[in-house]
Design a binder for these strands. Structure first.
Length: 152
DNA sequence: GCCAACGTTGGC
DNA sequence: GCCAACGTTGGC
């Protein structure tokens, strides 16, 4: 059982979008970074805990709790020429980009990035490290438990 | 819109 | 393999 923080731009897929999706589940399309892809492909398991994070918006921060709902499979948007996420070097035979399904379990209050930065318990979070831009980052059990307490 | 930080590309 | 140039992320 592992834990993750996954960023989504609310203008693309917000927590409300995911909440109202069938089975409260969305396919995590659009990851185009190898490290983030490798986390999904190599390390994520069904049932892993997910902190749903809003990025590139007025109030960035954690807005919900979710879980990994599938193993990794090819992200179909890489094959779609009209998609913003199209990758001409990817083929059906040798897909380059993978994704998992994510199921929302609970909408929470906003735990903002600014607030997280004030919490010593979270100072080691990958998310908060200088220059960290990864859209999917691992979260320790201690960080997960502490954050769940803040959100309760 | 700015810009720091990081990732990718491609010539050599 | 090096590294300069360019592109992207994402907070502010």
């Amino acid at each position: 059982m592992r834990y993750w923080l996954m960023k989504s731009e609310p203008s693309e897929v917000s927590i409300d979008d995911a909440w109202s999706a069938p089975k409260r589940t969305v396919a995590w399309t659009g990851v185009r970074n190898y490290q983030a892809r490798n986390f999904m492909r190599d390390t994520m398991q069904v049932g892993d805990g997910v902190l749903f994070y809003h990025s590139s918006c007025a109030e960035p921060g954690i807005v919900g709790l979710a879980e990994v709902a599938s193993t990794a499979y090819p992200d179909h948007t890489q094959f779609e020429p009209d998609s913003h996420y199209y990758d001409p070097k990817a083929t059906q035979e040798t897909p380059r980009w993978m994704m998992v399904d994510v199921r929302i379990k609970k909408k929470t209050r906003l735990l903002s990035l600014a607030e997280m930065r004030t919490m010593p318990e979270l100072s080691g979070m990958v998310l908060l490290q200088r220059g960290s831009r990864l859209s999917i980052t691992p979260v320790t059990a201690d960080e997960w438990n502490f954050i769940c307490k803040q959100l309760a």
